[in-house]
Write a protein that binds this DNA or RNA. Structure first.
Lengths: 209, 209
DNA sequence: TGTAAAATGTTGCAAATGCAACATATATTT
DNA sequence: AAATATATGTTGCATTTGCAACATTTTACA
């Protein structure tokens, strides 16, 4: 994953952090950080840990919008999620750095020559964010549970570079990520196993094709 | 929609365009521009017209990944769509400007003071791209055809600021955008009409709630 | 370590959806 | 204006999926 401060010396990084007036917060596991997020024109960077952006449907379904790991960003500068019922849940001890958009385009900061590198890094991170959104869309465009599972497995397998990989989710979460009924998903996984397409041992999945 | 050259004087814009080595191409309607897109590390900007990014499924389903209008961008710098069977179809006479990523971070260009404004504009555009991806995801996470339709209508209605709006798609395209069967969608629209939720006249939709 | 809570697995059944095969309407082209 | 292509509307039927209600297993924690 891309680092926001790549190619910036630690000295300049310190200077930059000051100019950006960053605000770093440590959270414990299973905390809803929504209250800190509920403002506009900022980005949050997951420095350590894991954060899930979850939408709670009026039907009682919860949908995992995205799962953010180290160096991934979120926030309303970049992506305003316009729903009321979004929560951001830490999945482990998580360190998050907040930056206000106004501080990113501030006149003082612009004068430094490392600013350009910073902006280029930010650009790259946004690009990879767009990539993961596209992945998500590609999964959700599949019409059947089977195709959603296979598409998601394909992506995990490609990232790992192996036919064997570990699910980053519980099966409940996986169903919420794929937006399907959990029991129907379990059934479909059983069929995929019986038909010899996959092998599953706990969260460890092997593709047999 | 955000403009990539906002707050840059026309003189500087010309200079910038030269430094970026932009390449502007005019296409007629219903042209597949894929051949020009099939390379990495570039962005394309839709200056005029409309472009649809379409994925053709092995099931024979085609899925509208996104529809890009004036000032929207696409390309592999920013969002590598990893599938083989993507096509980019112009929906009208369309003017597209291509920029290579290498030219964006080129050492010469970086020296100009308008470069920062350019980068900030690019950042904003990427942000709004992320927004539309989020919208798309929010629609696709809905589990029923009805909820997908209503979510999409809600978004169109919000954008227009009115309960009455015009679909930018044919119904065939709408079904491909929502990733549902067209006839099943027509049926659901009929139910929504009968139950008094909506009124439809051609591509003109009114929300009655 | 024992107990409660959470996760996983299973199944019958109803509802939603996709599919196919049409009819009709509208748009485009010659 | 006729002919063709494209878009829209409809319906029966098979399949998939969601839902509910469980049993079983695993995990968390008091």
């Amino acid at each position: 994953m891309q680092d926001l401060f790549e190619n910036i010396s630690s000295k300049n990084k310190e200077k930059l952090l000051k100019l950006l007036k960053v605000n770093t917060v440590l959270y414990t596991k299973n905390v809803n950080i929504l209250s800190n997020v509920n403002r506009d024109n900022f980005i949050g960077i997951v420095d350590e840990g894991c954060l899930q952006i979850v939408f709670n449907d009026y039907n009682g379904n919860s949908v995992i919008i995205e799962e953010l790991n180290e160096n991934e960003i979120f926030g309303n500068l970049i992506s305003s999620i316009n729903s009321d019922d979004i929560s951001c849940i830490t999945k482990s001890n998580t360190k998050i750095t907040y930056i206000d958009y106004d501080d990113i385009i501030n006149a003082d900061i612009v004068k430094n020559d490392f600013y350009i590198i910073f902006m280029q890094n930010l650009l790259k991170i946004l690009g990879s964010q767009l990539n993961s959104k596209n992945e998500r869309i590609e999964i959700l465009t599949k019409r059947s549970i089977r195709d959603k599972l296979l598409e998601y497995f394909k992506i995990l397998s490609q990232k790992k570079g192996s036919k064997i990989f570990t699910l980053p989710f519980t099966f409940i979460e996986l169903a919420n990520y794929l937006c399907v009924d959990r029991s129907a998903m379990t059934r479909e996984l059983k069929y995929l196993k019986n038909e010899g397409f996959i092998k599953i041992d706990g969260k460890r999945v092997s593709l047999l094709y």
